[in-house]
Each structure stands twice: as C-alpha cells, then as structure tokens.
C-alpha cells in the first residue's frame, strides 16, 4: 500500500472535526446541513481507506449505501428547511427552541 492508512484516518479526523465544529457553532441551518455532509464524507474516506488496507471491496460497497442515505437525508433535510422557513421565516437554528418538554 503506497499511502499509509494513518493518512486516510488523519484526513478523515480533520474533516470530521471541522464538520462537527460547523454543526455546533453555525447558526445558519444550511451551513449545518453542509457540515453534516462533511462529516459523512469523512466517514467515506475512512471506509475507502480500510477497503484498500484489507484488500476487499466491502468498504467501497458500504460507501455506496452511505451515499444513498446521504441523498435521502439531504432531500428530507431540505424539505424540512423549506417547511421551517415557510412557518417561521428564519433559518437561524437557535431560534428554534421548542425541543424541551
């Protein structure tokens, strides 16, 4: 293996941390969704890297399913965004504070 597995993992860790930071600190719902996509991509990199390491294709197959789920998630997420915007006329996440009992 030409490129050491650690490189993949470290890159994935960077992207994941950046994505997590984006989810946690951005107020704009779109950027939050982007950040989630970033985190998923970090996972994909891991899967592909391990697929290469273990010399099989299971990881790559898995990435296909991850993408499927990401696509569905994006569609639903965007639908929610539109619904929210229609009802509240804002997309600032901290304005939605009804998630309490």
């Amino acid at each position: 293996m030409v490129i050491p597995i650690e490189w993949y993992l470290v890159l994935s860790a960077f992207l994941f941390a950046i994505g997590a930071a984006g989810v946690l600190m951005r107020r704009n719902l779109f950027i939050v969704l982007f950040s989630i996509e970033l985190m998923m991509n970090a996972v994909n990199i891991n899967l592909v890297g391990f697929s290469r390491l273990h010399e099989n294709l299971i990881g790559q197959n898995f990435v296909l399913f991850t993408m499927t789920v990401a696509a569905a998630e994006a569609a639903i997420g965007l639908a929610i965004v539109t619904a929210l915007y229609r009802n509240r006329r804002t997309l600032m996440v901290d304005m939605f504070d009804v998630m309490k009992g």
């Binding site: 499927t68 569905a72 998630e73 569609a75 639903i76 965007l78 639908a79 619904a83």
Partner: peptide, 12 residues
C-alpha cells in the same frame, strides 16, 4: 430513497 422522496414531498 423512495421513503425519503415521499417524506420530502410531504414535508415540503
């Protein structure tokens, strides 16, 4: 994907 599509249409 199908469920996601239906859900998205319903929500939006």
């Amino acid at each position: 994907l199908l469920v996601g599509m239906v859900g998205a249409i319903l929500l939006a």
